[in-house]
């Protein structure tokens, strides 16, 4: 039976890669942006004592990857499974549909993990960006951000009526979330009100935690607590209200 679970995770991972959304939008796209931004000399000038704009963009792009997987790939795939009867078919087997959900989460988590390592590696080897100075703090921040985002993705999946709606709502949430992570305007350069709002959004909190870890400290508690709250509340609501059919 555990054999079945691993096989399911492996198959879901394979399907996620075949599906193109995860590899192209989730991994290749931010990687290309990383390389382009790294090649612009102006972005390599220090803006603070020891950070360049490019340094700030590395964690933004890591969040970009998680957000694409959790807000686009996951809900679209799972809502599609529900719509096409894949979950229903699973209910007639000894494995059941809950494990398909778990396998999807595990597969996306694994892809995100590989992408994160890849981005850090390319930034370090290609452009001499120092890795986070507090690796444990960074790992905790990444885990909680990934958990929060996957929970939100699961919540979207749980509540939307169709695959089309899942894609639409996931994409609609993606852009403001990425805005507050500082994709277009770095958080430090936002007006105070937007900075305050950002701190309470999942990606804004994730970014704050990443920054702390990059600068050498364990992330401060407020962003971590906010990420845990998103993860716990969204997962609980998703589990309680999940539409199986």
């Amino acid at each position: 039976m555990t054999g079945a679970t691993w096989r399911l995770i492996a198959v879901e991972g394979k399907l996620a890669l075949r599906d193109k959304v995860a590899p192209i939008w989730g991994v290749a796209c931010p990687l290309v942006v990383l390389v382009i931004l790294g090649s612009i000399p102006a972005l390599r000038e220090p803006i603070t004592a020891d950070l360049t704009i490019f340094d700030v963009y590395v964690p933004v792009l890591i969040l970009f990857n998680i957000a694409i997987l959790a807000m686009t790939a996951l809900p679209t795939t799972l809502a599609g499974y529900r719509e096409n009867g894949v979950l229903r078919r699973m209910r007639t087997t000894p494995v059941g549909p809950v494990r398909v959900l778990a396998a999807q989460l595990a597969a996306n988590f694994a892809i995100a993990l590989v992408a994160m390592a890849l981005f850090l590696l390319v930034a370090a080897l290609g452009f001499g960006v120092d890795p986070p100075r507090h690796p444990l703090g960074f790992a905790v921040a990444w885990l909680l951000a990934t958990a929060a985002l996957l929970s939100i993705g699961l919540l979207v999946t749980a509540l939307v009526p169709s695959r089309a709606a899942a894609t639409a709502i996931g994409t609609l949430l993606f852009f403001p979330m990425m805005f507050f992570a500082g994709l277009w305007v770095p958080i430090a350069q936002m007006p105070p009100l937007l900075q305050d709002i950002s701190a309470y959004t999942p990606l804004g909190a994730g970014m704050a935690a990443f920054q702390d870890a990059y600068l050498g400290g364990f992330p401060s508690w407020p962003p971590l607590v906010i990420l845990v709250a998103y993860a716990a509340v969204c997962a609980a609501v998703a589990v309680r209200w999940f539409r199986w059919e």
Partner: peptide, 29 residues
């Protein structure tokens, strides 16, 4: 579920799953 096999009227599979993979996967259940 272990002893009753079901062919669903509208039962489907992921689009990009291959036939052999599907049978191998479901067999492992």
């Amino acid at each position: 579920t272990r002893r009753l096999g079901v062919q669903l009227q509208a039962g489907s599979l992921p689009e990009s799953l291959r036939v052999g993979e599907a049978l191998e996967l479901y067999g492992s259940f």
